[in-house]
Structure formats: structure tokens, C-alpha cells
Design a protein around this nucleic acid. Structure first.
Lengths: 277, 277
DNA sequence: TCTTGACTTTATAGTTGCTATAACCCTTAT
DNA sequence: ATAAGGGTTATAGCAACTATAAAGTCAAGA
């Protein structure tokens, strides 16, 4: 019977010697014989089969302790059951990765938009496609107080996202809604806070559609300027004879806690849907 | 300015207190103030923004050290670059998970087939769909020696799979081919060893197609019986007047290193493609 | 004022699947 | 004699926490 030293076994199977020693230590693959006098490990070539099985199970995402159990249990039915669970688990992991990817794409889009945006204070007309929002009523008026209330509203939104089992990735690019009626009466009252979500990733019944429309927009790089800029927008509406055609939205385009470490740094797009006539 | 204790901050943001202490320790998020007399940590509510950013970046699969760098660097261009890399990395991870899932499905199929298979030694006719194999010539005759040579051939196959950057998951359900000419002359010579692969996961030019056909099959639960069973098959071919229509294949349906820990436990399907004159 | 219970602190060990290092042993060739 | 190339053990490190212990602090009720 041909025997392999640890180095040969390692090369043969493309694993490191340490890995084999480690497997020995955790009793998942022990060498066929260990020399009495020098303590050398000797592997039987047939043990490659077990190593293959270990690597195969590992490639399916199993932990070594799980694998050891299976090698010991020898019950195919149990293994079958575990494989099915594993399969579902992988589906979840793939879903999570898709979310991650989507999150990254969103961030990149935000950066691009930020770089291509009109300067602070400029008023522009933009056509914006239909969007979906996940919106909650926080029960407090955002415009009554400052950042502190906004932070508290954000906490509530986050809580809500978590209890609806939505991925945290949506917790960026939040925004607030000011209803058309309040806007028209220049009453700054909003208790609603939202995040934009993708139709593909969030069930429709959890979300609300915002119809595509032409929006009168103003870009804003400071939270504190919002109230002033809303009046600018309303002035423009009046001057040009536009008709307000829906709720006002304050959209956070991108956040830079990077720039000032103590609080949020924001870039906002304030928008009022209008029609011409 | 409202201040939060570590417990409040933790609840507010759905992280554990230990996590916040940990973040403090690695200087990724330090509390706004630390009390001089009792050492309590006090967080500003605005620091939630940084925690949000950390969680957001984490949800994109970044490491904490990476995140810290970004929080410190404040360079959007760098971040953009890193995000793009991350996106590619996620694609790879998704691909790997798909492989894993495919591996599990294959194993489950193998188990099912094993359970539904005819008993050892039974000869049956089966129609088998087209398959694709990744095949190498190991330069030694599998039938000349026993398991030892087979193990060595398996090593070569594995090496080849690795250098072609194919996932190790295919390294199960291996098999050998005995060319039609040799089979017809009853010359047991095969130096070719293969694994079945999915068309979707492996480039076509690396693989060979085995056409769909009706096969005369015999099931075999011991490696040593193969030679005997090949004669059984050939006898049956002669007796029934079939015509051999391609290469003989010895397919490993499933392995059970689970049952005997010292070497491979195999279940084979030996198959000869035939036509009815 | 004392006690209770909830909260905080620090320090330490454990998780997973290895890798890296140090310090040492053994054999063989030069 | 020594150098190269194997082997051995033991230990620490990674990442992002979790769990535990032992001790100090705070707020409220009896």
C-alpha cells in the first residue's frame, strides 16, 4: 500500500500542509498511520477520496463541523435534508448579494447625478420617470424643529424598514413629502418620510407610486436652505404661470458623512410636479 | 444637544452595545463625549448618520478597515473606484453561489437516482439525453492496475480542472471512457477520465458532447465488479442482436466515503450505447 | 438611606478556517 | 561539517463580532 507524506498529500490535492494538520487536529481527516518514532503523518492514497468529499462539501458552503458530522453520521437521508436547507440558504445569499449590487449601483448613480447637477440655487425643469416610494408617517412635523427631529424620523423609518424585512440598503437617499394642499397654502407641514425603492425588490403593496411628470426643481447643498428654496420655487411657479400637479418632494441625492464627520452632509433636490396650462 | 447612552444608541440603531464598543475601540465611530468620572460613553444623535453610513457600506460588503479609510479619506473619486471593484467582486460571488447551488442539485439528483436505481447486476435499457463531458487523457491504462491508478488519474483530472479554472464542484461523478473499437475487441484499455459538466457553466470548447442514445446499462455497487459486468453487457448485446453505437462509459453515480471512511464507496452505471440494427 | 434592578465599565476568551511564524528534529547530499 | 529540504509542535493572527465575568454606577421605591 502506497503511503504519502504530508507534503505529497498536500501537493496531490492542492491544499496546504497546514490545512492537513488542521484537519487532523479537528479529527475530520486523520492520517492513516503516524510513525511511532518521528511522529510523521502518513496518508493512504485512498484517503484522497475523503479529502475530495470534504472539498466538495465545502464548495457547497458547509462548515467543517457540519462536514465532520456527515462523515460520521453516514445517514444519506439526513444529508439530503441538510442539502435542501443549504440550497434555500444559498438562494438567500444570492438575493442579499443582488441587493448589495443594487445598492452600489444606486450610490454610483447618485455620485454621477451629483457631479452633473446644476449649481446650488439654480432652478430647472426636469422630466422624471415614475418612481416608487416606501413611505411612513412619523407623527411629528419635520419643519417645526431642526435636524434632531429629522434624525428621530429617520430612526422610525429604519425601524419600519427592519420590521418589514426590507434590506437596509434602502436606508439612504431618504426624503420627505409635503402634500400639495399644504404646499399651495404655504403651510410647511410634513410628517411623512420615505425612501425610494426598486419595484423588483420590494412588494408593490408596501410601496406607493409617484407618477412620472415634469418637475420644477431646485438643487440645495444645505439642509437649512430648504425653506427659503421652497419659496423660490413657488415664486417661479407663479411667475411662469405653471400649475402645481402633485405633492412636493425633498429628495436627498447623496450624503457625505465623509466630509464632515460630525453630522450629515447633504445634497438635496427639491421638486414640485407641474403642468403647463 | 441631546445625548444618548450606549444602550439607547444601540436600540436606536439596532446594533448591539458590544458592537458600539468595538467600533469605538477600532476608532471607526467614537462617542461624542466620554464622561470623566464614570467613563460612560455618550453619543450625539447626529452620530447616527455615521453609523448609517457604516452599515450602508457594510451592506455593500466592505470591511470595517476599508470603511474607516473612506470615512477618513473623504475622496469621492476613490470611493467611486472602489465601488466599481466591489460590484465586479459581487458578480463573482454570485457566480460562485450559483455553482454551489448547482452542485447541491446534482448531489440531490444523484441520491434520487441512487434510490430509484435497479439493483446491482440488473441489465436494463435506458434512453439517456445528450450530455457534456470534460475529458482528459491521463496517459495510463486504468484497467491495468487497481484503485491506485484510478486515484492517480483522478489527481490529474483535478489538476486539469483547476488549471482550467473550473469549479471543484464538478469533481464528483467522475467516470471513464472505453472507446468503441477497444470495447468491440474486448480490449480493456482506457486512459481517458472525465466529469460531466453543465453546458451553461463551462465553455463549449472545453467539453465534448455525448449524443443522446439508448444505452444498455448495468448497475454496479463495487469497483471490482466492473470487468465482469462489462462481459455481461457484451453477452447481452450479442444475445439480443443489438449494435454497439459508440463508446462505453463507466459513470460514477454517487460516492459514499460516508459509509466506509477508508476508501471510496461507489455506485456505478456502466453503459453501452446501442441501436437496434 | 438603603436596596434593588437596570445599566455601565473593562478585560478576556471564543467563533471559523485557516495562514504565518518560530523553534526544533531528521535525513541526505555535497 | 553543513546546507537543503523535508517533517514536528506550539503560538499568534485574521474579521467582526458574541459571550462571559467581575466590578462600578444610576434611578427609583420602601
Amino acid at each position: 500500500m502506497e503511503m504519502l507524506t504530508i507534503g505529497q498529500m498536500a501537493k496531490y490535492n492542492h491544499v496546504s500542509e497546514q490545512t492537513l494538520r488542521f484537519y487532523d487536529k479537528i479529527h475530520i481527516l486523520e492520517p492513516d498511520t503516524v510513525s511511532q518514532d518521528n511522529g510523521y503523518r502518513y496518508y493512504s492514497i485512498k484517503q484522497c477520496a475523503i479529502l475530495d468529499m470534504i472539498q466538495y462539501m465545502k464548495s457547497m458552503g458547509m462548515k467543517l463541523t457540519e462536514i465532520r458530522k456527515h462523515l460520521e453520521s453516514r445517514d444519506p437521508a439526513l444529508i439530503e435534508c441538510i442539502l435542501r436547507q443549504k440550497s434555500l440558504q444559498i438562494d438567500e445569499e444570492i438575493r442579499d448579494l443582488r441587493y448589495q449590487k443594487r445598492a452600489i449601483e444606486r450610490t454610483l448613480q447618485s455620485y454621477q447625478r451629483y457631479n452633473a447637477s446644476p449649481p446650488d440655487g439654480a432652478i430647472v425643469l426636469e422630466y422624471i420617470e415614475e418612481r416608487r416610494m416606501y413611505c411612513i408617517d412619523a407623527g411629528m412635523n419635520f419643519y417645526d424643529y431642526g435636524m434632531e427631529v429629522y434624525e428621530e424620523m429617520l430612526r422610525k423609518l429604519k425601524q419600519s424598514l427592519i420590521s418589514d424585512k426590507l434590506p437596509q440598503i434602502y436606508f439612504c437617499n431618504a426624503g420627505t413629502v409635503l402634500r400639495q394642499k399644504n404646499l399651495e397654502q404655504q403651510r410647511l407641514y410634513s410628517s411623512e418620510i420615505f425612501v425610494f425603492v426598486d419595484r423588483d425588490y420590494v412588494p408593490d403593496q408596501m410601496t406607493v407610486s409617484i407618477p412620472a411628470s415634469t418637475y420644477l426643481c431646485i438643487y440645495c447643498n444645505e439642509f437649512e436652505k430648504e425653506k427659503k428654496y421652497i419659496s423660490h420655487l413657488l415664486d417661479e411657479v407663479e411667475e411662469k404661470g405653471y400649475v402645481i400637479d402633485g405633492d412636493y418632494i425633498c429628495e436627498v441625492i447623496t450624503e457625505f458623512p465623509l466630509l464632515e464627520r460630525k453630522e450629515r452632509g447633504m445634497f438635496l433636490r427639491l421638486q414640485i410636479p407641474i403642468k403647463f396650462s
